[in-house]
Computed example of a mutant assay.
Amino acid sequence: MPVRAILKTHEDSMTKTVQFLEDEFRGVRTGRASTGLVENMKIDYYGSMTPLKQMASLSIAEATQILIKPFDPSSVKNIEKAIKTSDLGLTPMADGGTIRLPIPPLSEERRQKIAAQLKQMAEQQKIAIRNIRRDANKQLDDEEKSKVITEDDRDKGKKDIDDMTKKYSDQIDNILKDKIKEVMEE
């Protein structure tokens, strides 16, 4: 496999890792309402675990409240139950065929815990990025040993992989910094 193909494959993996982190961060509670908090929550819907965003329209009623309008009004109880049993610590209020989900302000202690949780999530993705680098370097070494690429190509490929690793690790750091700032704001 040529060096360019190896780099492309592993860069795609790194991009997916960063996107995964962004998706994970969308589900982390901050001081204000965000539909990302509940949209991927799984709800028992006629025996099948279904993401909430496929069962209801989600909107922000005001800065501190999420409005959930189920497409099937009979699913209100199941949605309420799933929110109550989740680790979000939120109490849904059923209002006819809709559910109002008030987002109370976070205490300073809770903000600190969320920030620590965010750092841990980001570190896991940085480890994944480094593992991708390790796999790419191994693949470059294997290709050079089997005489598919030259030693110079391998060395240049390794340098490119290191640059790519730094680029994506920096992206993760920036995403983390922005999310922590969002959590710590009142």
Results as ranks from 00 to 15, higher is better:
20 F>A: 15
166 K>Y: 07
138 K>G: 06
61 A>S: 04
101 L>C: 04
143 E>K: 07
60 I>W: 01
182 E>G: 01
47 G>M: 10
17 T>W: 08
158 K>L: 02
107 S>C: 10
152 D>C: 11
71 F>S: 02
122 A>C: 05
81 K>Y: 09
15 T>S: 09
103 I>N: 06
149 I>G: 13
49 M>Y: 10
175 I>E: 14
34 S>N: 04
52 L>G: 13
109 E>F: 05
149 I>L: 10
94 A>C: 10
10 H>G: 07
55 M>R: 05
5 A>L: 10
153 D>V: 09
77 K>I: 09
89 G>D: 06
132 I>S: 11
82 A>S: 13
138 K>P: 06
127 I>N: 11
72 D>G: 05
39 E>K: 03
136 A>R: 04
55 M>C: 12
87 D>H: 04
75 S>E: 01
70 P>R: 00
158 K>F: 14
11 E>P: 00
52 L>D: 13
50 T>F: 06
112 Q>I: 14
127 I>C: 05
165 T>G: 06
15 T>F: 14
109 E>I: 12
139 Q>W: 02
158 K>V: 08
119 K>A: 14
137 N>D: 08
139 Q>I: 00
93 M>R: 07
97 G>D: 11
104 P>S: 15
179 K>H: 08
174 N>C: 08
143 E>G: 07
86 S>Q: 00
159 K>S: 06
180 I>V: 12
123 E>A: 12
174 N>V: 03
43 I>K: 02
26 R>G: 06
100 R>F: 04
24 E>I: 09
135 D>K: 12
114 I>P: 02
14 M>C: 12
33 A>D: 02
124 Q>I: 06
143 E>N: 12
115 A>L: 05
161 I>D: 08
51 P>S: 05
51 P>G: 03
65 Q>D: 03
41 M>I: 09
133 R>E: 03
132 I>M: 03
139 Q>S: 06
158 K>T: 08
168 Y>D: 02
91 T>K: 08
120 Q>R: 14
184 M>C: 04
86 S>V: 00
55 M>V: 13
81 K>Q: 12
25 F>S: 09
2 P>H: 01
14 M>G: 04
61 A>F: 08
45 Y>L: 07
58 L>S: 01
156 K>R: 15
184 M>S: 06
139 Q>G: 03
150 T>E: 08
65 Q>K: 06
72 D>W: 11
7 L>E: 05
65 Q>W: 01
38 V>P: 01
49 M>C: 10
16 K>D: 11
126 K>V: 07
56 A>C: 00
36 G>A: 04
22 E>M: 11
126 K>Q: 08
4 R>Y: 14
75 S>G: 00
52 L>F: 12
24 E>N: 15
129 I>H: 05
169 S>Q: 06
23 D>T: 13
130 R>Y: 01
34 S>P: 10
11 E>C: 00
178 D>I: 07
45 Y>Q: 02
185 E>D: 12
9 T>Y: 07
40 N>Q: 12
4 R>T: 10
134 R>H: 06
136 A>Y: 03
103 I>K: 00
74 S>C: 10
53 K>C: 02
56 A>F: 03
36 G>E: 03
77 K>V: 13
80 E>V: 05
172 I>T: 14
91 T>G: 01
69 K>P: 13
